[in-house]
Design a protein around this nucleic acid. Structure first.
Lengths: 226, 226
DNA sequence: GCAAAAGTGTTAAACCTACACCCATGA
DNA sequence: TCATGGGTGTAGGTTTAACACTTTTGC
C-alpha cells in the first residue's frame, strides 16, 4: 500500500435548546494552532475504535455532556483546513435534551460553553462552515423526522414545541393549525398534568410516544411539517 | 500530534439508467484482498488533493466514465472493514447520463462493467452496504430534487421520465397526474421534435430547463414528488 | 383495421391556510 | 379586574387521487 499520511479526526456539532435559544457546544482550545479560539469538540480517531465510538469518546472527555441523538453529518477534507497536517474530519450532528443541557462540574467550565447560535465567536479551522452545515441539517430534518423532541424535556408544553419550530425554522407558525396537525399524527401522549408558569392559564404536558411513532412509520406514516 | 495510522480512501457509487434498468458501475479487483471480486471504483486519497478531486481522479483512472452529477454520500469507518489496515472510506454518489453510459475503449472492458442493481455479484469489503446507502439516497433525492434528469438523455420522452420514477421508486405512477404535476412545475421545455419508436404514436421530446429551475428555486419553489 | 404507445379532463376527498375569541390562572 | 399565555373551529382554496377514452402511428 502506497505511503499516505493523512490524519482522521471526528468533530461533533451538538445542539441544545433552552429559553427559545438554540445553542452549540464549544470548547476553548488550549494548544496551537488556534490557541484560545473556540472550536467544536473532537479529536483524532484511535486506530481501534469506530468513528462513532471516537466522537462519543471525545464528547465525553471534552464536554462530559450526555448526547440524546447522534448521527453522521458530513466529511470535510479540504487540503488546507488544518495548517499543520492534512486532516480530514468526519463530523457528527448531535442533540441534547434540557435534562442534559448543563455543563457538568468535572470539566473545567471555563473551557466548555454553550453558545447562542446567533452569537458565535470566531472559530478554529473551518468550524464555522461545519456548524452552518449542521444548522441546515437540523432545519431540514425537523420537517421530516421527529427529532425536535430530542431538544425538549421528556415532558413538554405544546407551546415549547411550537416555539422550538419557530426558533429553528425562523418563521411564524399558526398555533391552531400546528396543534391540529401534530396531534393528528397521534404520536403525542397528553398527560394528566398541568404546569402553571406563574402567569396565564396553566398548560398541559405532553410526551412524545416513540414506540407509537415507529409503529406508524412501519405502516408508511410520514412525519412531515411544512 | 499523536501517532495514528489510518488510511483515507474514497469510493464512488455511480448510477446509470438504460432500458428501464438502474445499474451501478463496478470494477474487478486484480490484487488482494478480494482479488477477482467486483468492487466500487475508488482508492486512496493523495496528500495534496481534495476528497472530490480524489474521487474524480479515481473514477477517471479506473472507469474513464464521465460523471454528470456527484455529491458526497457517507463515510464508512468500521474497524474491520478492510482486512489489511484501518481504512476509512469517504463515499460519493454519482449519476451518469446515457450519453456517457458506455464504457470507453481505453479501459479494459473486462474489468469495468455496469451491473443491474437487481443482480449484483458478491462485492469486496462493505461495498454492498455502501451501494444500499446510495440507493436510499437516490430514492429519497429523486422526490425532492430534479436529479432524475441526470440519468436521462438531454432530450427525453415524458414516458422515459415516468419509467425512471417507476423503476427507481419501485411503485406505479398515474400517467396523467404525473404529467400534470411535472409540467405544472414549468421546468421542462417541450421541443418541436417527435420520436417514433417504431410502434405506437410518436412522442414529443422534452428538455430539462436547469436555469429556469434555479430561478424558481430562488423564489422558493420546491421540487416535490410523492 | 389492429396493435401499441401517447396524450388528455373531471370529480370527490383530503389537506392546507387564514383567521379571532374565550378560558384559566396569578397578581 | 386585568394581564398573560392556553386552548379551540370553521370556511375557502388548493392539492391530490382515482379513473378511461381518444389519437397517431407502423404493420
Amino acid at each position: 500500500m502506497v505511503h499516505q499520511n493523512i490524519k482522521v479526526a471526528v468533530d461533533g456539532v451538538v445542539f441544545g435548546y433552552k429559553d427559545n435559544i438554540l445553542s452549540v457546544l464549544l470548547i476553548k482550545r488550549d494548544i496551537p494552532p488556534f490557541q484560545e479560539y473556540w472550536a467544536l469538540p473532537g479529536g483524532l480517531v484511535k486506530e481501534e475504535e469506530s468513528l462513532e465510538a471516537a466522537v462519543e469518546r471525545e464528547l465525553k472527555e471534552e464536554t462530559n455532556v450526555t448526547i440524546d441523538y447522534l448521527e453522521q453529518l458530513y466529511s470535510f477534507g479540504e487540503v488546507g483546513r488544518d495548517p499543520r497536517n492534512r486532516v480530514i474530519s468526519i463530523t457528527y450532528f448531535g442533540l441534547v435534551k434540557p435534562e442534559h443541557y448543563t455543563i457538568k462540574a468535572d470539566t473545567d467550565a471555563n473551557d466548555v460553553q454553550w453558545f447562542d447560535i446567533q452569537e458565535l465567536p470566531a472559530l478554529a479551522f473551518d468550524h464555522t462552515t461545519i456548524i452552518e452545515a449542521a444548522k441546515e441539517r437540523l432545519k431540514n430534518k425537523l420537517t421530516y423526522e421527529p427529532i425536535g423532541f430530542d431538544l425538549l424535556a421528556t415532558k413538554f408544553l405544546f407551546s415549547d414545541l411550537e416555539k422550538l419550530y419557530t426558533t429553528i425554522l425562523e418563521k411564524k407558525i399558526d398555533r391552531r393549525n400546528f396543534r391540529k396537525k401534530i396531534l393528528g399524527f397521534g404520536i403525542l401522549e397528553e398527560l394528566d398534568e398541568k404546569v402553571s408558569e406563574g402567569r396565564g392559564r396553566p398548560a398541559n404536558l405532553f410526551k412524545f410516544n416513540k414506540k407509537q411513532y415507529f409503529m406508524l412509520k412501519e405502516k408508511g406514516f410520514l412525519f412531515d411539517i411544512k
